[in-house]
Amino acid sequence: MNTKKLTYMAMLTTISLIIFIVELRIPTLAPIPGMKLGLANIITVYAVYTLNVKKVGMIVFARILLGSMFSGNISALIYSISGAVLCLLGMLILRKMIGKEQLWLCSIFGAIFHNIGQTAAAVFVMKTTTVIAYLPFLLVSGCIAGLFTGLCATYIIRSERYTMRSEETSR
């Protein structure tokens, strides 16, 4: 890994961490554990469509570990990690089927996988199936948030292409 790639990945991690920390200040709409906008996943979805598996994993896990330390809620780490693992696996498989223009669809599935992973971890940790009652609420909010983050990533990729093209023509 050369310096340029390392810097690029560090920058992506930093951006997603900043988004994550700003989002902590936004109060949650409903008192459902695990319900979040997940705006930091704009960078995750972007990375899934522009980088390889290893790099995406490194960016996401660095963000989750640092994010949980900064937010001071380390007990939530197991839920975030199990959600992220399932979400990344699902999105990396779907990446091959869904083109860049329909990226929002992949993002929605990512959110669905994340919610399922989270809930599975909660069932495992709490040793009760009661927490499954939260899954439908997480899925509804997750689908909407996933669509939003997916659309954000689509616009980033589109505008990036546009700037690259205009740079080429200006040369």
Binding site: T28, P31, I32, P33, G34, G72, N73, S75, A76, Y79, A122, V125, M126, T128, T130, V131, A133, Y134, F137
Partner: peptide, 24 residues
């Protein structure tokens, strides 16, 4: 750290869950 269980208020439709203290 999160106080989600307190924010849930009175028990109505969804269970009150405290993830850090594993209470339902």
């Amino acid at each position: 750290p999160d106080h989600i269980c307190v924010d849930t208020g009175w028990l109505e439709d969804v269970p009150i869950v405290c993830l850090p203290n594993r209470l339902v």
